[in-house]
């Protein structure tokens, strides 16, 4: 391991302090709600990024893993009184298993076909949930109980506890992604994305690696679902299993910067902020919030196709160009 330079060390220390201070500074339930949702969307983006970003297979149905995570917590609690601290890992395993089956079937398709196929599967899963009484059908599930131990059952009374816990989880996943980013696994995924023929000829079993990426992304998205469940303490298919959610998962990553370590986090922060504020402040003009939200997203995707994370690099390149242009001008 390389030692962090003092400048970087300061940067990280600064970020840590901000993370600790922010929930205290903005100490309202609404602010905490936004921060919690940012964490959840960051996880969703980081998860999707493995299959959609690194491996380049655009999945349009990742809401199902979000739902599996959420419902795993709810149902295991209702049926077996299982603590969410354990249930969320069961949800991850379940999602990995289902991702294995779906991936085996669908990953042979590329591009639009894969995107549409994953969308279709997600729609089927939604219909199954809506029509299954055992998981609450269209009315969904509700898990709050004052009788449960708040710490053992992750039902905290203070919204700030959620913020801190979820931030810590995001940091852990981020450290994992940062490490993975430099390993053979991620280089292989990038190679498959860039040129599958070349990758295969260089000894890469593309089908296996894509399947692994798909399963890993399902696991992280499932974890986000479990956390969402514990925060809301209630969910139904219309909240969690819609094509809207699947699309938002794609958007968070695309907007932040596809195939990058920090892109999904940046995308999550910006998108959550925009969507929550437009929702709260503009919702009395029917639908206006969605319009503004949509336009903002279109503008960003249109003018910054490499995502928000590419902005500093763009500015730097722009300055350099102006700089060199200024120097060359007198010579001509």
């Amino acid at each position: 391991m390389k030692k962090l330079s003092s400048k970087r060390y300061l940067l990280w220390a600064g970020i840590l302090v901000i993370l600790i201070v922010l929930p205290l500074l903005f100490n309202t339930a609404f602010s905490h709600h936004i921060m919690t949702m940012m964490c959840i969307w960051a996880l969703l983006g980081m998860g999707w990024n493995f299959i959609g970003g690194y491996a380049g297979q655009i999945s349009n149905g990742h809401a199902i893993y979000y739902a599996f995570g959420a419902y795993a917590n709810a149902m295991l609690l209702q049926w077996f009184n299982l603590s969410p601290w354990i249930a969320m890992w069961v949800g991850c395993l379940l999602s990995a298993g289902i991702a294995f089956l779906i991936g085996k079937g669908l990953l042979r398709f590329r591009g639009h076909v894969f995107a549409i196929a994953t969308m279709a599967v997600a729609e089927c899963v939604r219909l199954i949930f809506i029509n299954t009484k055992a998981v609450g059908g269209a009315t969904g599930v509700y898990i709050f109980s004052a009788k449960l131990n708040p710490i053992l059952y992750m039902q905290f009374s203070s919204t700030r506890t959620y913020v801190y816990l979820y931030m810590a989880i995001v940091v852990c996943v981020l450290l994992f992604v940062r490490w993975l980013n430099k390993t053979k696994f991620c280089y292989y995924l990038r190679a498959i994305n860039g040129n599958e023929t070349a990758a295969e000829s260089a000894g890469i079993n593309a089908a296996n690696y894509k399947l692994l990426a798909y399963m890993l992304s399902a696991v992280i998205v499932s974890l986000a679902g479990s956390l969402y469940m514990q925060f809301m303490l209630y969910t139904d298919p219309s909240m969690i299993l819609t094509s809207n959610i699947s699309m938002m998962i794609v958007l968070v990553t695309v907007m932040g910067g596809v195939g990058t370590v920090y892109g999904p986090i940046i995308g999550a922060i910006v998108l959550t902020y925009i969507s929550e504020y437009t929702r709260v402040y503009l919702s009395h003009y029917n639908g206006l919030d969605m319009v503004i939200y949509g336009v903002l997203v279109i503008l960003i995707v249109l003018f910054i196709p490499d995502g928000l994370i590419s902005i500093p690099g763009r500015i730097k390149r722009h300055r350099e160009r102006r700089h060199t242009a200024g120097k060359e001008a007198p010579a001509k």
Binding site: Y188, R190, G194, G203
Partner: peptide, 22 residues
Amino acid sequence: FQIPQAIVTLTVEENVLIGALC
């Protein structure tokens, strides 16, 4: 390959690295 199959999303170095990871 007769028609070069560079992995265009990667640098030259990384292209060769992909081979070296075999």
